[in-house]
Simulated assay, not measured.
Amino acid sequence: MPIDAVKATSAEPRSTPISWDHKDVQLYHLGIGAGSRPDLADPATDPAELRYTLESRLHVLPSFATVAGGGMALAGGLTAPGIDVDLAAVLHGGQRVEVHRPIPVRGSAVQTSRVAAVYDKGKAAVIVLRSDVADADGPLWTCDTQIFVRGEGGFGGDRGPSVRTDPPGRAPDREVTRPIRPDQALLYRLSGDWNPLHADPEFARRAGFDRPILHGLCSYGIVLKAVTDTLLDGDVLRIRACSARFAGVVLPGETLRVRMWAEAGRILVTAVAAERSDAPVLTDTVVEHV
């Protein structure tokens, strides 16, 4: 069996040194659309966007944690003991990032990762990877990554929790659109996710798609930035955590429609593909903040 759940979850955690600097942060921000907001007259030079693109004013969106050090967390989950799967069968199922203190513009840290669980969904398996990152001053962030592997279920394991976070039954407090550039996936993958599903048409067809799709984590970053800019006054320091389930794909060249509902200490969010009758892209999405 390609996935040995017991072997995977009982393996020793792996520790890897990672580092980053302002160029990595700027590249990531550009990869999720910084400098191209449609609601600004001149987004390339607007002060609101320069916080993401200009090194002298730079702050770090917490979703950068998913690519810091070259996006090693997801790769670690696919090479863990007991895990042997076809990359064409792999999709990113969900993501949660919790920041313990602000992410510095440049830093060196140690990432410790382990397979926290393997769930049997029948026709698929879900691998849950937990990664904790700390530097000399202590914990920085924790990432929980859910890796969905088609065709690898049915091994008699635990189905895992089923947690849904539905938006309130009222109109959203804010709604914005974010266009996806035709080259968005090509730019985003330079931050470390080299899965050919997002660039190679032949590989995408083998995986069951008409053409390359956008990275789920790119949509995740775009949505977190939209929420930050719209309801948190652009202040990344207010963000404590962001969790999301990847319910569908978005294609380069399409438009994300992001709807937000503000509650005490959190913002509930959905993201849909506007051109495809609001097909779901991100669901069960919650941004926790102060």
Results as ranks from 00 to 15, higher is better:
Pro2Lys: 09
Lys7Ala: 14
Lys7Met: 13
Ala8Lys: 06
Ser10Asp: 13
Arg14Ala: 15
Val25Asp: 04
Tyr28Met: 12
Gly31Arg: 03
Ala34Ile: 08
Ser36Gln: 10
Ser36Thr: 12
Pro38Ala: 10
Leu40Cys: 02
Thr45Tyr: 00
Thr45Asp: 07
Thr45Ala: 08
Pro47Asp: 01
Pro47Tyr: 05
Arg51Cys: 07
Arg51Trp: 07
Arg51Met: 04
Tyr52Trp: 13
Thr53His: 00
His59Val: 14
Gly71Leu: 07
Met72Phe: 14
Leu78Glu: 10
Val85Met: 09
Val97Tyr: 06
Glu98Asp: 15
Glu98Trp: 10
Val99Thr: 15
Pro102Arg: 05
Ser108His: 13
Ser113Lys: 03
Val115Asn: 05
Val115Cys: 06
Asp120Trp: 00
Gly122Cys: 08
Gly122Thr: 07
Asp132Met: 09
Asp135Lys: 02
Pro139Glu: 07
Trp141His: 11
Trp141Asp: 05
Gly153Ile: 12
Gly154Trp: 06
Asp158Thr: 13
Gly169Ser: 14
Arg174Phe: 14
Pro182Val: 05
Gln184Glu: 13
Tyr188Arg: 11
Arg189Trp: 00
Trp194Cys: 11
Ala199Trp: 04
Ala204Lys: 04
Ala204Pro: 01
Phe209Trp: 00
Ser219Cys: 10
Gly221Leu: 09
Ile222Glu: 04
Leu231Ala: 14
Asp233Ala: 06
Phe246Pro: 05
Glu254Ile: 10
Leu256Ile: 09
Arg259Asn: 04
Ala262Phe: 04
Gly265Leu: 08
Ala273Trp: 06
Thr283Trp: 02
